[in-house]
């Protein structure tokens, strides 16, 4: 009796374990890995009329095995490089400067939060996380109301007599950077804050006592110790910024076309799924290194974890 109970318990604990691993593993294999294989396949086939609007890459018919494998889609990306590779360059440029600008604002903000007393810190952290919980689409929409030619800023400036004709702020690099700041600033602040809060006051005091200037303390102590936060935050901003669709679609003009928007247009407007798939492969190639590198950063986990609940704690 006791032996059979033990056996039953062992069965549950052994196969329970298997299920715990197998269920999420299977889900991710089917709905994450297989789709990527599917995109890769589709990028080598040809578009055609019908449902789905592309020819199968391979299969069997009455003559046996057939394949539609070709590199035409990638050739197209190169032939019309200013329509495809150009936006990819735009994406890298805009994402790079967005990351820098986010860092410029996030670093002092995170420092400010980390140096506050616990009560003030809790309030500031909520202020940082609140935007993360609200729809970025709606916040970008709010920004349009501010930047439009007849928007809030222009009407205020005209009302105050500062300018006569509206400033052109929409559909410029400026509007893209504002949108990126609005969307990604919290993601830069949180990993920075996570490393800064661990920075001991004694360390800064020691450096100052040994004669280091403020700039000296910053360069030799603060900057090296916060570097992991800078790297983690930069990856958190840069990677999604490169693939961003909503920001260039709503805030950008023809000069700010980004690769995510090109993919969208190719798919929804031109209904050329193979070319859209080739663009997806291009985007993945651009981001492969940062994505692999990001896997070895624990700052990202710290940031998501903080957003996910523990943020208000002192």
């Amino acid at each position: 009796m006791a032996a059979s109970m033990m056996a039953g318990r062992r069965w549950i604990s052994r196969h329970g374990r298997r299920l715990v691993v197998a269920l999420p593993l299977l889900w991710l294999l089917i709905f994450f890995l297989m789709p990527l294989v599917e995109v890769a396949q589709t990028s080598f086939t040809t578009a055609r009329r019908g449902i789905p609007p592309f020819a199968p890459l391979w299969g069997f018919d009455k003559d046996g095995f057939f394949t539609n494998f070709n590199l035409k889609n990638y050739g197209l990306l190169l032939d019309y490089w200013q329509d495809y590779i150009g936006p990819a360059g735009n994406s890298l440029r805009l994402a790079f400067f967005s990351t820098l600008i986010c860092l410029l604002f996030a670093y002092p903000m995170a420092w400010w939060i980390a140096r506050s007393n616990p009560r003030q810190r809790a309030i500031l952290l909520v202020l940082v996380m609140l935007p993360f919980w609200t729809s970025s689409l709606l916040r970008i929409y709010a920004l349009i109301g501010l930047l439009n030619p007849n928007g809030f800023i222009n009407s205020m400036l005209i009302f105050l007599g500062v300018i006569d004709t509206p400033l052109r702020m929409m559909q410029t690099d400026f509007s893209i950077y504002m949108g990126m700041l609005l969307t990604y600033l919290p993601l830069m602040i949180l990993p920075l804050y996570a490393v800064m809060i661990r920075l001991e006051d004694d360390l800064l005091d020691a450096a100052a006592d040994l004669g280091a200037s403020r700039a000296g303390v910053f360069m030799t102590v603060v900057l090296p110790l916060t570097l992991p936060g800078i790297v983690a935050g930069s990856l958190l901003v840069f990677i999604p910024a490169v693939g961003e669709f909503v920001i260039p679609a709503l805030l950008g003009g023809p000069e700010q076309i980004m690769v995510g928007k090109v993919l969208w247009t190719e798919f929804f407007r031109n209904r050329d799924w193979p070319v859209a798939s080739a663009i997806a492969m291009l985007l993945l190639a651009l981001l492969a290194l940062p994505i692999i590198y990001a896997r070895y950063q624990d700052g990202r986990e710290a940031a998501i974890d903080r957003v996910g609940g523990q943020g208000g704690a002192p």
């Binding site: 297989m34 990527l36 995109v39 999604p240 693939g243």
Partner: peptide
């Protein structure tokens, strides 16, 4: 999936 661009996730899942 945490760092996958949304357009790629969307397109690839649709194809699947």
């Amino acid at each position: 999936p945490l760092v996958m661009p949304e357009v790629v996730t969307g397109l690839s899942l649709l194809l699947l």
